[in-house]
Design a protein around this nucleic acid. Structure first.
Lengths: 242, 242
DNA sequence: CCAAAAGTGTTATATATACACCCATGT
DNA sequence: ACATGGGTGTATATATAACACTTTTGG
């Protein structure tokens, strides 16, 4: 570690002794459709290959590299696990209770969304051996405090879907209103009135109707896309910019 | 240790070398009344006594001790600076851009509220030499990225006051509706209709009317206190419990 | 009595919710 | 034709906002 500032030796020593190992983990949400067409929120977990908690499922993550930002570390570990680029990435919380791991570790946790279609496609250069996708509402016992972390991430996702447009991070570019509504229903865990849902999202002014229709069964549904202009205005000050 | 993927010995060794210095800072909000009775949001800053940014104003904070949790570190540095116990304390964000300091430092930033009456009383065992309180809307150029951090904390405070009861963290136990409204006005930066404000907070069901009145000028105003029962239900999963 | 803040009432507008109904397509 | 989801209309409840008005104190 090369120092470039004027720190006296005593302070230097004190600072060095308080250095902490920092991990970055990510709760990655995607959508999976059951054969009956109902959608549910899923997330990837990895098996721990060493102690502590060897053999248990845990959130994907890794150590923070000294040369990379927190955001970059989250994106990197996410790519290593899933081979995907997230459609949405936001810091969740920094966990730092002393007893959350046998050795003192601070975890900066992010949460991310990846599109449904992408989460199925296998990418060549990422490790799929130890990765499996779980229904978010039926997780096994996870390593460390990861169960609580996922609960908090779900709480944040449910909250955010109510006042922002994050839902589109789980959909492809073009989508029908029924598909968008299914995302909301999967996240919120309850059915929404199609008529009222339509008006709400239309009045929000974020949807751009296209000239295409999704055909297949019954009456064709119009395809929409999101208005990219509205994107920036909505973001809070510190959202990760992709 | 939260490593969740296959790590060989070499990587493990690398991980040990990536320990990072972690700082904890806190944006501490309080209220100050001008002679004309108008309230404004103020916060304490400290002068940096060494480089980098020696002589500049900065957020109070310190290094994370290996034996203390993040929450405890925030409370400790807050007490060292102001000699006060916060009435509200919440994690704000973890800042980790590589170039935010000449040497790599991660800052876990908290934000806190201290009651108006307490923020004036001098406590014997804390350092007041380098501390000064500033109006939050007229800050000087701060060290590091602290101006942006304060902006974000203010954004969060303004947001939170809209849907939660944080405002009472700036008031004494008993308060009039006019005093509560002044807190809202100071935070939001705009006047609120007294009649509508009264109904909103009354309907929220958090206020308990007392039998006392604040007298002094004009018609006496009833004193209220907050319903402690409602406290727990409102908190998100990860609010710091005092 | 008067000024000023405390507190109540009334009305207009917007939004949420429930649900009846018509439309267009594949089978 | 008919079942089904796409899409529109409408009524009711509730929240928000603007503002007129009455009440109660100090001076």
């Amino acid at each position: 570690m090369t120092r470039t500032t004027l720190l006296d030796a005593a302070h230097e020593a004190a600072a060095a002794s308080t250095a902490t190992r920092v991990a970055v983990s990510t709760v990655i949400f995607s959508l999976r459709r059951s054969p009956d067409g109902r959608a549910s929120v899923v997330l990837p977990l990895v098996t721990r290959t060493r102690d502590p908690h060897q053999g248990q499922w845990a959130l994907p993550g890794g150590w923070l590299d000294i040369t990379e930002s927190l955001d970059a570390a989250a994106a990197r570990t996410l790519a290593e696990t899933t081979g995907l680029a997230p459609s949405y990435l936001e810091q969740l919380y920094a966990f730092g209770a002393v007893d959350r791991s046998p050795t003192r570790v601070i975890s900066i946790v992010y949460w991310a969304l990846v599109r449904e279609d992408e989460s199925r496609s296998a990418s060549p250069d990422h490790d799929q051996e130890n990765v499996a996708w779980f229904d978010a509402s039926a997780l096994p016992a996870l390593a460390f405090d990861h169960n609580e972390i996922v609960e908090y991430a779900l709480w944040r996702l449910r909250n955010k879907v109510g006042y922002s447009r994050v839902a589109h991070g789980l959909l492809a570019d073009e989508f029908t209103l029924a598909e968008l509504r299914e995302v909301y229903e999967a996240i919120l865990g309850r059915r929404l009135d199609p008529a009222n849902f339509r008006r709400q999202v239309e009045n929000a002014g974020n949807l751009v109707p296209t000239d295409s229709f999704r055909t297949g069964s019954h009456r064709p549904a119009r395809l929409y896309r999101y208005n990219q202009d509205a994107e920036l205005a909505e973001r809070g000050p510190l959202t990760v910019r992709q």
